[in-house]
């Protein structure tokens, strides 16, 4: 069963091409991640599916309903959580939830079962004004409000941006349980590490869908060897490597520098000896499995070259 069908959708604003001929299908009860940097077109695609904007060309369907024509019906069955916190700051947690429940023609009690898991965490603060909540709690409240009418499809625009690591982890846990209820979840994120938590991901860049696949398959598409290097002066090491190899193949990842060994030109031993000779006595090099981020950067390079 298909929940979301996007067919050749393009969206052009006055000056920018936000979406360029995108097609994608999301299965029912799937967590589908839209991964991409800022300005990639994630929000535009989500807004088209939420009936908030119209595509310039192409068609989008949600649960068999046309996003442009049947917007009234779609608005009854989706839960949408916009990128920026958009509940009412001057209303308390409880009042916000009650308000959105009644707007969707339901009550908190009726679907309490569904939101319980999330709401239980913020319930101790139910008298507090929404504007005074922390980032993570705000997102949980917003999710509760988007869920209160038991939507068939949940569209979440960067729900974990600006949220601490623990809350992010909890948030994804919640999404997993919602999926078990049969809710289709379309979620966007700029964090690559979250991609692995999705059932399938679409990598989006410059308005183009570059790859749609299982997170594990995307990693399999990475055909090169990958080294992780670390020394006491990573900055100098990075500079050195960029001079020595193709600068695009060198990326810094936290404590490590990742080097793509394109066409297996190098061997660890030779590289290590070379670097020791060049003033990196404590260099450590190991071969690693690529992460989704490596794949994404590689894919991005593919489009820009």
């Amino acid at each position: 069963m298909k929940s979301i069908i996007v067919k050749n959708v393009s969206k052009k604003y006055k000056q920018a091409q936000a979406l360029d001929n995108i097609s994608v299908v999301v299965e029912k009860g799937e967590i589908f991640g839209l991964i991409g940097p800022d300005g990639a077109g994630k929000t535009s695609l989500m807004r088209i599916l939420s009936t908030l904007i119209l595509p310039t060309s192409g068609e989008a369907y949600l649960e068999g309903l046309n996003c442009a024509r049947d917007y009234k019906k779609i608005r009854k069955i989706i839960g949408y959580m916009p990128g920026k916190f958009s509940l009412y700051h001057d209303l308390s947690v409880e009042e916000n939830l009650n308000f959105f429940a009644s707007v969707f023609g339901t009550t908190v009690r009726e679907n309490y079962d569904l939101v319980k898991l999330i709401y239980a965490q913020i319930e101790p603060f139910k008298k507090r004004r929404a504007g005074k909540l922390s980032g993570g709690m705000k997102q949980k409240l917003a999710l509760s409000c988007a869920l209160i009418h038991y939507p068939k499809v949940l569209i979440l625009d960067e729900p974990t941006t600006g949220v601490d690591a623990v809350s992010r982890k909890e948030f994804w846990q919640i999404l997993k349980t919602l999926k078990e209820r049969g809710i289709t979840i379309l979620v966007s994120t700029p964090y690559m590490d979250e991609a692995e938590l999705c059932d399938r991901v679409g990598l989006i860049q410059g308005g183009k869908m570059m790859s749609v696949n299982l997170p594990s398959e995307i990693i399999k598409e990475f055909h090169h060897e990958l080294f992780a290097l670390t020394s006491e002066n990573n900055y100098r090491l990075m500079k050195h490597l960029k001079e020595r190899t193709n600068p695009h193949d060198v990326q810094i990842f936290g404590q490590n520098i990742h080097l793509i060994n394109r066409k297996a030109k190098l061997s660890i031993e030779v590289l290590k000896q070379d670097l020791i000779n060049n003033g990196f006595p404590n260099i450590s090099i190991s071969k690693i499995q690529p992460g989704i981020e490596d794949c994404f950067i590689e894919l991005m390079r593919g489009t820009s070259d």
């Binding site: 009936t51 009234k72 608005r75 949408y80 916009p82 958009s86 959105f100 707007v103 969707f104 023609g105």
Partner: peptide
């Protein structure tokens, strides 16, 4: 945005 994406 949310009010628009509601049956109101």
């Amino acid at each position: 945005e949310i009010l628009l994406v509601s049956p109101l």
